[in-house]
């Protein structure tokens, strides 16, 4: 469960001040499927980064699964990210030197899972995301859809409670984008909280809750 109260995030560019988040109050229950939409620069990514503990708000409180995570140390934030959050990015962010399987294995490695179990879980994930025949391929040898599937497999291998996707279909054509969305929705059906930032009205509409942002504020929140 995610609870944000009066979250602000300021960016200073020279003598100019941008309020990327301006007093955000937001509750998202476990297992919800939320889309966040809004014009460029409205603060969608910043909101997602704060929820994912990648960014720190300048003021306000953040409660995740019943614990206050606002003032955690950097190391503790890293642990929470590892255990509870999965990120999916527009540009995939795969490590180019590592194979698909190795990219998916990274979070297990960071978590210190032993190699035998790692292999079993990676193999299962490869199958689940229909990547079995691409296991030993490196990202440059994969199509966009395959890359994003690897990224999603990686984001979910540690079974996070929340999956945060920032324009996951932004670099994919329409048909592949729809496939990737279906995949994410499948994970949502399995119980994961799913928050998707998107510019695509059609895709955004598929969520069960629609949040609209403008100038760092939530201007609409419909179920």
């Amino acid at each position: 469960m995610i609870r944000l109260s009066a979250i602000t995030r300021l960016f200073r560019m020279g003598d100019q001040e941008v309020r990327a988040l301006n007093g955000i109050d937001l509750d998202i229950a476990s297992g919800e499927y939320v889309s966040i939409m809004g014009p460029s620069g409205s603060g969608k990514s910043t909101l997602l980064n704060v929820i994912g503990l990648l960014d720190r708000p300048d003021s306000g409180r953040y409660e995740l699964d019943g614990t206050d995570v606002t003032d955690l140390s950097e190391t503790e934030r890293a642990r929470v990210r590892r255990e509870k959050i999965g990120f999916v990015f527009q540009s995939f962010h795969l490590v180019p030197r590592l194979t698909a399987a190795e990219n998916i294995e990274l979070p297990l490695m960071l978590e210190g899972v032993d190699p035998a179990e790692r292999k079993a879980r990676v193999d299962a994930a490869l199958d689940a995301f229909d990547l079995g025949d691409r296991a030993r391929h490196r990202p440059p040898e994969l199509s966009g859809g395959q890359r994003q599937r690897v990224a999603i497999a990686r984001a979910t291998i540690l079974r996070p409670t929340a999956l945060l996707a920032d324009e996951p279909t932004g670099n994919l054509d329409h048909r592949i984008g729809a496939e990737v969305m279906a995949l994410l929705e499948g994970l949502h059906h399995a119980g994961t909280t799913l928050i998707v930032v998107t510019h695509d009205r059609e895709l955004g509409a598929r969520a069960h809750r629609h949040i609209a942002m403008r100038d760092g504020e939530i201007v609409a929140d419909e179920k």
């Binding site: 994912g52 990648l54 950097e74 190391t75 890293a78 642990r79 929470v80 990210r81 590892r82 255990e83 959050i85 990120f87 962010h93 490590v95 990274l106 979070p107 960071l110 978590e111 990686r154």
Partner: peptide
């Protein structure tokens, strides 16, 4: 840099 950012997003602590 981007790769380091990714590792952080995946939950790698600074020490790692």
């Amino acid at each position: 840099t981007a790769e380091i950012g990714l590792l952080k997003a995946l939950g790698a602590p600074a020490a790692d």
